[in-house]
Write a protein that binds this DNA or RNA. Structure first.
Lengths: 234, 234
DNA sequence: TCAAAAGTGTTGTAACTACACCCATGA
DNA sequence: TCATGGGTGTAGTTACAACACTTTTGA
């Protein structure tokens, strides 16, 4: 912190959100179509500026989550990714953005709510393959968010944030497979997640899904760190 | 990114640095004594405001590293920790700070250079035990920086950033012990670091240190990720 | 009775902890 | 010749990938 009376240049502060969910066993990210220049018509991460100078950065992230995605931050996993402050990242002027990573369970309906009209779930593989171009440096932010999610699946119980209140072990496995982009052995996965103390807790009832043996239902346990970790292949 | 023409409130943007080094096998952090209110006389992380509105956040971190610590950023490990944006974190007004973690090799002299006069290396255990109080939310930032360093020692070659160009395996072990706050078995450590491909490379020569068998000298290899990781006990 | 999904057993191996032991040096 | 620190050998253990196998269901 500078110790003199010189006044530093103000910058505009924004928050951007990387919101992941799983839809049909594919990882999706919420993107909005921009209605104004720059990058009019391009896709961008949802986000916005701080509303007033008493609003905390985390509070702004929660507000945008509600406004742009109609999601309740208190029900979701939300963590900071970092600040993006390259001087030329926004052609309009000096904007520094603090990015957040949010994880939502798969939702039956795409989205509802006023501001969320332009928002849509986009398959992450489409973005990675370059089939969906992002505005500003949002591709970098998305890459960082994806890497954060991938690495936190290894050592934390983050995967349960992708699931509904109750889920089967197979559903949990699909989370790992979609985020990591790999296939896992269901038999080894089955034992590994159950061996980790209080990662998932059985509910006693089962779910019949057409054919095959019914799967036991689980809910998320209280454990936040996974020991031993589930290490991704490669 | 908001799509309207309303002008958001500007905030002041600062950078703060968590600079770690090892001195006499104890982890130290660089702290400066504040010369002005608020928190006059208290200790704080080195840092400062953005100098002009074309200065990138990373560039500001590098500049502060040079000005306040007389350290050359191109020689050091420097990575972003995150943004600290609680609305009441600075009593002077709305200041959002982007924190960086820097790792410096143990230096023979404390520090030299004009602005660095008030800066001094403080033992991290003193801060953790509450024997050195920090201004603002700098204690939180320090905690986050320490946790980041601890976890990156596990899976990256960060430990070599604490060492001089050439070092012995024992010196590398002291890095792990100081940062993790544990004791490690030197015989297992010896093999583990050498088994990791291109983590450290032997130089062929040795160092005599008074008594005992001379130790082989190594330099950092090109490997950045450690596989298998060195996992900390507990 | 067959396909599909859930769940169990077992083998071989990588990587680790713990500790006994030997080597090279200065005092 | 002893203390000190460098370096090697090895037994017991944990965790895991790979895959054969059994169980339970719907069609």
């Amino acid at each position: 912190m500078a110790d003199n009376d010189w006044t530093p240049p103000p910058v505009l502060l924004a928050v951007d959100l990387v919101i992941f969910t799983l839809r049909d066993a594919v990882l999706h990210v919420l993107l909005v179509e921009r209605g104004v220049d720059p990058f009019r018509g391009a896709l961008a991460l949802p986000g916005g500026f701080l509303e007033h100078d008493r609003e905390g950065v985390l509070a702004a992230a929660r507000r945008e989550l509600q406004e742009e995605a109609n999601l309740d931050a208190s029900q979701l996993h939300l963590e900071q990714l970092g600040a993006y402050g390259a001087p030329d990242r926004d052609p309009r002027g000096r904007v520094v953005s603090v990015a957040y990573l949010a994880i939502a369970p798969g939702l039956p309906e795409p989205l509802a709510g006023s501001d969320a009209a332009r928002a849509s779930w986009t398959p992450v593989p489409d973005v990675l393959a370059g089939r969906a171009k992002l505005a500003f440096d949002h591709r970098d932010i998305l890459d960082d968010g994806l890497e954060r999610a991938r690495s936190k699946l290894e050592s934390s119980a983050l995967a349960t944030a992708f699931c509904a209140n109750t889920f089967t072990i197979n559903e949990l496995q699909r989370v790992y497979e979609a985020v990591w982009g790999v296939e896992l052995d269901p038999r080894n996965f089955y034992r590994k997640v159950q061996a980790t103390n209080d990662f998932i807790v059985p509910l006693g009832n089962e779910r019949r899904a057409g054919r095959g043996r019914p799967a036991r239902l689980f809910k998320a346990g209280n454990q936040t760190t996974l020991y031993p970790p589930l290490v991704r292949p490669n």
